[in-house]
């Protein structure tokens, strides 16, 4: 653990291969690391630095800019309660308060059993469903305090196997079959695409 394992390293190479410049794969690879370990370790960042040929400081510079990357262990279930303006208007603060009370944690803290981390987050794009939240980036809409308690109970009892552990984003990955790939458009390759030059363009 910590460095990308062999499977993930293979995926990493596949992802890197899609971009004209390796560094572009940084964010996807950091997600991969977080998916593997639940958070982004220093070892993983060093490994990624090697893979995309930048310094670890550059990887950390990028990693630390983005909210979703956790650089310390978090709960198995990361509960993000939206406190954006629409949710604010419809009781987000109360919901956050309730969540913190019932789980006994505050401001991004993790429960003692390591199951839940609760955080108020900025708008998660479900404003018409306010107040809303995400558990490991899976939505729950129009959440009342009762809904919240039921959700936590369901997760605890194992009834929410649809929610993957923290770090997993898309359960479906893009895969480009080799024979179907057009290949990255390399920056150095100053070629007008064939279809354009032949068909005539207004360019």
């Amino acid at each position: 653990m910590a460095r990308l394992n062999a499977d993930n390293e293979r995926i990493a190479h596949e992802i890197i291969g899609r971009y004209p410049r390796k560094k572009s794969a940084l964010i996807p690879l950091l997600h991969l690391a977080q998916e593997q370990d639940g958070w982004v370790t220093d070892e993983a960042m060093s490994h990624i630095a090697d893979l995309v040929e930048v310094t670890p400081a550059e990887v950390l510079g990028t990693c630390s800019f983005y909210e979703m990357f956790k650089r310390h262990p978090v709960g198995d279930y990361h509960v993000n309660i939206c406190h954006g303006i629409a949710c604010h208007l419809l009781g987000a603060d109360e919901l956050i308060h309730h969540a913190e009370e019932t789980l006994g944690v505050k401001g991004g803290g993790t429960t003692d059993d390591g199951r839940f981390t609760v955080e108020g987050v900025e708008c998660i794009a479900a404003c018409t469903e306010a107040p809303c939240l995400q558990v490991n980036y899976r939505f729950a809409n129009k959440v009342t305090t009762q809904d919240f308690d039921a959700l936590i109970a369901d997760i605890r009892s194992g009834a929410r196997s649809d929610i993957p552990p923290h770090g997993t984003l898309a359960k479906t990955r893009q895969s480009i079959p080799e024979e179907r790939a057009a290949g990255p458009a390399l920056v150095e390759d100053a070629q007008e695409p064939a279809w354009l030059s032949r068909n005539g363009s207004d360019q």
Binding site: Y19, L30, M68, A181, A194
Partner: peptide, 21 residues
């Protein structure tokens, strides 16, 4: 991808994703 619908048009569409910002 390559040779879209059998034409000479070839374009990859790559899904990329952010991380909260």
């Amino acid at each position: 991808g390559k040779n879209i619908l059998g034409t000479e048009v070839s374009v990859d569409v790559v899904l990329h994703w952010g991380a909260g910002a």
